[in-house]
Amino acid sequence: KLFRVALLVPIVAVIAVLYRDRAAASLGARVPAFPPFLLWFLFFVALTSLGVIGPATAAAANGTSRWLLVAAIGAAGIKTHFSDLMQLGWRPVVLLLGETVFIALAVFAWSVA
Rank of each mutant, 00 (worst) to 15 (best):
F3K: 13
F3Q: 13
V5H: 11
V5R: 13
A6C: 08
L7W: 08
V9Q: 01
P10Y: 06
P10N: 05
P10R: 07
P10V: 03
I11W: 10
I11Y: 12
V12T: 14
V12A: 14
V12E: 12
A13L: 07
A13Y: 02
A16N: 06
V17M: 11
V17C: 08
L18T: 10
D21N: 13
R22A: 11
A23Q: 05
A25L: 11
A25C: 09
L27E: 08
G28C: 02
A29C: 00
A29T: 07
R30D: 08
R30M: 00
R30E: 09
V31F: 04
A33L: 10
A33G: 04
F34V: 02
F34T: 01
P35Y: 02
P36I: 00
P36V: 00
F37K: 10
L38K: 01
L38W: 02
L39P: 04
F41T: 05
L42R: 09
L42P: 04
L42K: 08
L42D: 06
F44L: 09
F44K: 02
V45N: 10
V45Q: 12
V45H: 08
L47E: 07
T48G: 03
T48S: 11
S49K: 12
G51Y: 02
I53R: 01
I53Q: 00
G54K: 07
G54N: 10
A56V: 15
T57H: 04
A58H: 01
A58L: 08
A59Q: 05
A59Y: 00
A59T: 02
A59L: 05
A59N: 01
A59P: 00
A59D: 00
A59W: 00
A59K: 00
A60N: 05
A61P: 01
A61Y: 04
N62F: 10
N62G: 08
G63W: 03
G63V: 04
T64H: 07
T64F: 11
S65M: 06
R66C: 08
R66Y: 12
R66N: 09
W67M: 13
W67N: 11
W67S: 07
L69K: 07
V70P: 01
A71K: 02
A71M: 04
A72I: 06
I73A: 09
G74F: 04
A75W: 09
A75G: 05
A75I: 03
I78M: 12
I78D: 06
I78E: 05
F82S: 14
F82L: 15
S83I: 14
L85A: 14
L85W: 09
L85G: 10
M86D: 15
Q87R: 15
L88E: 13
G89P: 03
G89M: 03
W90L: 14
R91T: 08
R91D: 02
P92T: 04
V93S: 02
V94G: 08
V94K: 13
L95R: 14
L95T: 13
L95G: 08
L95D: 13
L96G: 10
L96S: 11
L97Q: 09
G98A: 06
E99D: 12
E99T: 12
T100L: 14
V101S: 06
V101L: 13
F102S: 07
F102W: 10
I103T: 08
A104L: 13
A104T: 09
A106T: 07
V107Q: 04
V107D: 05
V107F: 09
V107I: 15
V107G: 00
F108E: 07
F108W: 13
S111M: 03
S111I: 03
V112D: 05
